[in-house]
Amino acid sequence: MSVATAIRTTSEPRPSRGRALLVGSIVTFVAGLPTFFNRTDLPALENWGTIHLALVLQALPFLVLGVVVSAVLSTFVAPGAMARVVPRTTIVAVPVAALAAAALPGCECSSVPVAGRLVSRGVPPAAALTFLLAAPAINPIVLIATSVAFPGRPEMVAARFVASFLAATVVGLLWSRRRDASTLRFRGHEHTGTPAERFTSTVTHDFVQAGGFLVMGAAIVATIQTVVAPTTLQRLGGQGVVAVVLLSLAAFAMSLCSEADAFVAAGMAQFSPTARLAFLVVGPMVDVKLVLMQAGSFGRDFAVRFAPLTFVCAVASASLVGWVML
């Protein structure tokens, strides 16, 4: 497999053997898929390819938007300058960041590079992370899509907004209390040269970094969607807490775009409203695709610690809000 060998030859000066191993094994796994499916089930491979390309192509415009915004910040805002405009105390900055996120009509894919760049421009990491979580969940487009998918159920839209806001804020505040909170580093770096040169090299660097991980995420999601039968969820069913956990895990694995998840949730009529709310709150904040992109932008150690925290907070927040409002 030429792609796989190409990767291996480029990784000769291993700065981190574990990372090379991880990337290598994913690539080999993905590259091996065709051979596997060719022998067993050709439609499965085609299905995988269709979903993989669809995920990548769908995310591409949002990723490019995020990268361009990030590059504009990088080019025209001096490092650390944002520290002056952001509220000084974390307890204020975090909710403000969550509200600011509501105004960015982007998908999860644009918020990763933007949040990273905000950190390098002086925004407290906790606030930037809150922004990262809130942007895809509570922007107007997503809320409108939710109300279209749940006609006559405005409480679903309200509950989604409240639960997502709550979860994003809580994660931000919890993260700010970590001892190593301020050590979060965006793995993009500063470029030199004229503004135009800085702009193009930032776009290039951020895109290659986040895009590579996006492709990996899309490959994994496509594999899950192809291998796990869609009827599985229906068969498992479940009530109460089981249903909430089940749909939260489903949201994590399916990695749907936050504009489309409401209509999938609307179709899951056999699950309780609270479980469906959990599906809508967890999906935009933490899913396979997103965790990989975060690993790409902030490092794997960060993603490993941040994702479970987010998952737990999102599920808890959805359960609480669902219990009160639905």
Binding site: A6, T10, V27, E46, M216, G296
Partner: peptide, 29 residues
């Protein structure tokens, strides 16, 4: 190097588009 190694993954969609040439969802799906 770290960035470019992840960046190589960007070639995968091209590979999929050419080799797998996926079509629309059909009877199997």
């Amino acid at each position: 190097h770290r960035a470019s190694r992840a960046g190589w993954m960007l070639l995968l969609p091209m590979f999929v588009a050419v080799v797998v040439a996926p079509g629309t969802l059909g009877a199997w799906a």
